[in-house]
């Protein structure tokens, strides 16, 4: 089930650059459901499910596995860790949060007193408290270069919504897993790419697209929200259906793919929203510019409080997205 798959993937440790534990979970879930699985030099997990037709197109569908985090840059003599951002993690949102390292070592992110009258804290104003009393004690638990991520914390909110860290972008990974499980005898070949390093510049998807050489590209990712009191843009609401991206900073969706997504939604009887995002990007931007260019679009899951420890989505949007995708792989 979508919800179980989601919960499984949300629990895996996988900061940008160290996504292999997420990939392991995906491999387990997809075992027996696909034609091939391989891992490339950047850690992308590339999964194929062949199309039934002789002239099948190759559709690359990408969902990034990596999660923003904090990398240890120094250890103070008192045992506190200094950190730097891996991806777009904001000091304001990470302060006072619980984080966890690869081996399960927990830490609390603390904020230095604001003595300089700054409006926004900077990374240098933060430190991580792992309970060590000295540098020596801390070094037994953590080394410079280790990366911490928001500690897993899955919370059901109301009837349809769930909150968790790493919803960006494990919800899309879950969607892609389910698509690859449910697609049976579909017309086109699906190459599912569970990509790495999206949060630092779409790096995994860029090399995967070069290797896969798809006819059509599609990224699955979260998008921002416009349905809280003072946030109006993008004009996207949770629970009103997945969003078809028109454009963001990384990509203007290829008209062909964008329109096929609308067509697929209509065929599936699923309401979709139209997303124009003034910032941000997805793997789609890298796929579209691969080699001589690939017609590419993005299907988004609306998500509140993106890059915080409580990223909220609506499971109905996920279910709708799965239905749209099952149609899309036939129509594209």
């Amino acid at each position: 089930m979508l919800r179980d798959t989601l919960q499984t993937l949300l629990g895996a440790y996988g900061p940008t650059g160290q996504e292999h534990l997420v990939a392991d979970k995906v491999r387990e879930l997809l075992s027996g459901h696909v034609d091939s699985m391989r891992t490339d030099a950047l850690g992308n997990l590339i999964v194929e499910k062949f199309g039934a037709e002789e002239n099948a197109k190759t559709i690359m569908i990408s969902a990034h596995m990596d999660h923003i985090g904090l990398v240890v840059t120094d250890i103070e003599k008192e045992g506190f860790l200094r950190v730097h951002a891996v991806g777009g993690i904001s000091p304001r949102l990470v302060a006072a949060r619980k984080v966890v390292f690869a081996d399960g070592t927990p830490g609390i992110v603390a904020l230095e007193p604001n003595t300089k009258g700054k409006k926004e804290p900077e990374m240098s104003d933060l430190f991580v408290d792992i309970g060590a009393d000295s540098r020596e004690e801390a070094e037994k638990l953590v080394s410079i270069g280790d990366v911490a991520v928001y500690a897993p914390d899955f919370t059901a909110l109301g009837r349809h919504k769930v909150a968790s860290p790493a919803m960006d972008n494990r919800c899309a990974c879950a969607l892609l897993v389910e698509l690859l499980m449910y697609a049976e005898g579909q017309k086109n070949t699906i190459v599912g790419v569970f990509s790495t390093q999206e949060e630092v510049g779409l790096r995994g998807a860029r090399v995967a697209a070069y290797a896969v050489e798809p006819d059509i590209g599609l990224a699955l990712d979260v998008t921002a929200w416009g349905d809280t009191p003072q946030t109006k843009l993008p004009a996207v609401k949770l629970g009103a259906g997945p969003a078809v991206k028109i454009m963001d900073r990384s990509m203007i969706a290829s008209p062909y793919v964008r329109d096929k997504l609308f067509e697929a939604a209509q065929a599936a009887g699923v309401a979709v929203q139209r997303e124009v995002l003034a910032f941000g990007g997805t793997d789609g931007g890298a796929i579209q510019l691969s080699r001589g260019g690939v017609p590419t679009g993005t299907l988004s899951i609306p998500c509140r409080y993106v890059h915080s420890a409580n990223e909220v989505i609506d499971l109905r949007d996920m279910e709708g997205a799965l239905k749209v995708l099952l149609q899309f792989i036939e129509l594209a």
């Binding site: 416009g226 109006k232 843009l233 004009a235 028109i246 454009m247 203007i252 124009v276 003034a278």
Partner: peptide, 17 residues
């Protein structure tokens, strides 16, 4: 420009391309 939102009175709000 691109339409990013439609106000209640039918005015179109704008993003840029």
């Amino acid at each position: 420009l691109m339409v990013v939102n439609i106000e209640e009175d039918g005015s179109l709000r704008l993003g840029q391309v």
